[in-house]
Each structure stands twice: as C-alpha cells, then as structure tokens.
Design a protein around this nucleic acid. Sequence first.
DNA 1: TACCACAACTCCTCAGACAAGCAGAAGAGA
DNA 2: TCTCTTCTGCTTGTCTGAGGAGTTGTGGTA
Lengths: 227, 227
Amino acid sequence: MAQVKRTPLADQAADLLLERIRSGEWALGERLPGETTLAPQLGVGRSTVREAIRQLAGRGVLASRQGAGVFVTALDAPEDWDAIVRRSDILAVIEARIAIEGEAAALAAERRTPGELRAVRRALGQRAERRSELAAHVDADTAFHRSVVAAAQNPILAELFDGFTPRLREAMIEMLRNRGVFGDDADHEAHARLVEAIADRDPDRARALSRAHLRALAETLEGIGGR
Amino acid sequence: MAQVKRTPLADQAADLLLERIRSGEWALGERLPGETTLAPQLGVGRSTVREAIRQLAGRGVLASRQGAGVFVTALDAPEDWDAIVRRSDILAVIEARIAIEGEAAALAAERRTPGELRAVRRALGQRAERRSELAAHVDADTAFHRSVVAAAQNPILAELFDGFTPRLREAMIEMLRNRGVFGDDADHEAHARLVEAIADRDPDRARALSRAHLRALAETLEGIGGR
DNA sequence: TACCACAACTCCTCAGACAAGCAGAAGAGA
DNA sequence: TCTCTTCTGCTTGTCTGAGGAGTTGTGGTA
C-alpha cells in the first residue's frame, strides 16, 4: 500500500519549474514570467511561488533581480545527489560507502590522535542510549561513521562522505520503519570492534571490519528489497 | 570607494543562519527555533525568514517538516571541489582515488561486460600513442581510469570519481611539467596488468593492482613535493 | 499499564498592501 | 533628427494578518 506522500506546495512548484527549465522552455540567461503570472499558472499563491524560486536560487539554478525579474543561471543543479541517490540501487550506495569508509577506517587507525579517538568513543557511547526513536537511531549511527571518517584526517574523503550520506537519512529511516528494529546489538558490537582496531593502530583490521560491517548491512537490506 | 551593495534581506538572513549553523550553534539533526522566534531575532519579517530557510533547504543544509520544525541536515554544502582540492594535500587526493578506484576495480572485475572490457582495452591502447603532449598524456590517463570506474557499473562511484577528478587535470599537468616525463613504461605496464586482472574476473588482484599503482604515483609525487 | 483525546505548538499557504528598483516609452531641448 | 531627461508601468522585496494542516507531548480514562 503506497503511503500518501504529502509534499509542500512550494516543493512541488519548485519541481515543476525545474522540470520546465530542464525541458528548455527558458534558455540559459533568459527571464522567467513574473511571479504574478506564474502563481495562477501553477495554481498557488505568490508567496509559494517565491519560496519555490528561492529554493531553486539556493541550488544555483535561478537568480532574481529586484525590478528586473528572475533569470535562469544554470540548466542543471551540479551533482544533484538527491536525484542520483534516489534512482540508484541501495546496493550501489553501500558499495560506495564501503569504498570510502573502508579506506577511511584504515587511515584513521594509522593517524588518529587521542582527541579523535575520544570523539569516536563518544559517538559509540551516544549510539547505545536511545534505540526507540528511529530517526535518532539513524542519526547516531551516521554520527559514529562520520567520526571515523573524520579521524582519517583526509578532507577529500570527508567531503565525499558528507556529500551523499545525508541524503540517505530518509531512505534509512523508511527502511527501518518497514523492517522494524534492526541488528541493534550486532551493529553495536561491530562498531565496538572497529573502535578497538583503530585504538590499536591496526589499519588492515580496521579496514576489514568496516567493510564487513557495511557488507552485512547490504545483505540485510537486500533481503527486504531496497528498490 | 566601496560601491553600495544592496543585498536582499532574505539573502542576508540566509547567510547569517548558515554562519550560525557552521559555528555549531545547532548540531546536525537538531531543531532550529521557530520562525516566529527567529524573525524578531534577525530583525526581519516572518516571510523573509521563510525564504531564507527555503534557500538553505535548496542547498541541502536545512529541511523543514510541517508541525515539527526546521532541522539541520548538513553542516555545510560547499560542493566546491575546486577550493577543496586546491587546499588539500595531493596525498589526500590520491588516498581518495585509492578508495574509489580500488573498489571500482574489484567491482569491474566482477561485473564487466564484454563491451566494457573492450572500452577499457581501447582506453589502454590510446594511452600509449602520444607521449609528447603533456595534456594529452594526462587526459588519456584519466580516460583509462574512468573506463575502469565505468565498468564497475555503480553510478555513485562514477559520480564520486567525476566529481573531483576533473579538478586534478591542471595540477597533474603542472606537476608533470616540473618533473619531466614520468614513468611512461612503468605506468603502462601497471595499467596493462590491471586490465588483465579485470579480464580474468579476479576482483582481489584488480583491487590490489589498482591500489599499488596509485600508491606508487603518490610516492613519486611526494618525492618532488606536492604542496 | 495501555490507550485515546486534546491542546499547544509547529510549519504551510494565501491575500493584500506598500516600498524599492529596473527598463523602456514619452517628451523636451539642441 | 538626435540626445538627454523624465516618467510610467512592471518587477521583485518585505511585512502583516489570518486560517489550515501536521506533530508532539500531556493528561485523563479504562
């Protein structure tokens, strides 16, 4: 049964506009119809149109100049992770995480400072607290993985991780909701072992543990069908 | 004489909010104060605050849920690879490539179609042709690595690779110019062995070869000082 | 203890009003 | 006829007030 999906009108309006922009209705640098024209055309109020435009402006697609109008500044949002992640197999996403996090875990084991190790341990501890709230659970899990990546002291890896991981939040929560509680203890156990390897400065073990952990996640999710 | 700079209040408000988010005033996943609280705090009207929030939402920094509040979904959304790559150590960049390409090589060995194998071989062949032009040399090298990533059949990995690799072009050319010709034959040899592993459907060997190849590159570059 | 109704919050949307700014048309002067 | 100035209409920017819709925690009830 498909759950009803309530999307704010402003978001829908933004999607519609982006679609029309991509379709080439307005060329690069061209001016869009005025807000007062667009509003009845889309069947929404002017403020809603303005919010949709602002949203696209934030993504660099549109730019508005007072008194002049709204102009197209880009035909496509650069690296739209939302769209890419949405149409990708969940397995592909986890494979990417394996690539990034496996390497990051190994580097973290080599280079972690005492402070970073403390941060990782703190993230591990916070994770165990509340396992009722789904969203909190996912956030805590993400925070732990993020702390490991941070300990690798590699800004590129951190950027890659931050780039698309936040987009997984909704999908993960959704998946947990459909499946119920998932490997709480097993997960925490795996995390704890990973922390040990990092503390022991054992890169190979850290890499292997990180990979195994994510691989297990992939297999779990595959069993319940991840799109 | 500084030209007067008229910036819309909504843009200013968005900047202020982003600054406060970056400063850590609200942690990742945390809830922001309500619009009605934020508006007088920033000295603007409610709709202006809403537009500022929408703008940041478009950039993926914030997400609002009706009835619940506005939440921080990312601490930063730079997607400005130029700046990141520029201030990063060349070693960090290669470590990221090791992470992505190592995994991609393994996946390519598992899943490559005959067509993809042909594409990789073609890229290998084109590489050998002209070793005089520096730019052409770098482009051919990149094209070969790209063909391997493509054979992994993982859109996320491909996107990650495409995201920051193009930014390396200038740096690589520069580096080659300072150093003179670099390991032509050794490089080609390494590439050829990698192709063999992929052709043989040997993931572990492919991964190891890819890693070793990039590791060697890192060591070569380190010797001449990569910023 | 478990469940349910409710109330207080939140964001969402609309409408109307006025200010600020831009661009082209209309007009005055040479 | 050309050039410069002025003006007018249209655009976006901002604020306010109102009501709708959704969420969340509280308190009462069985």
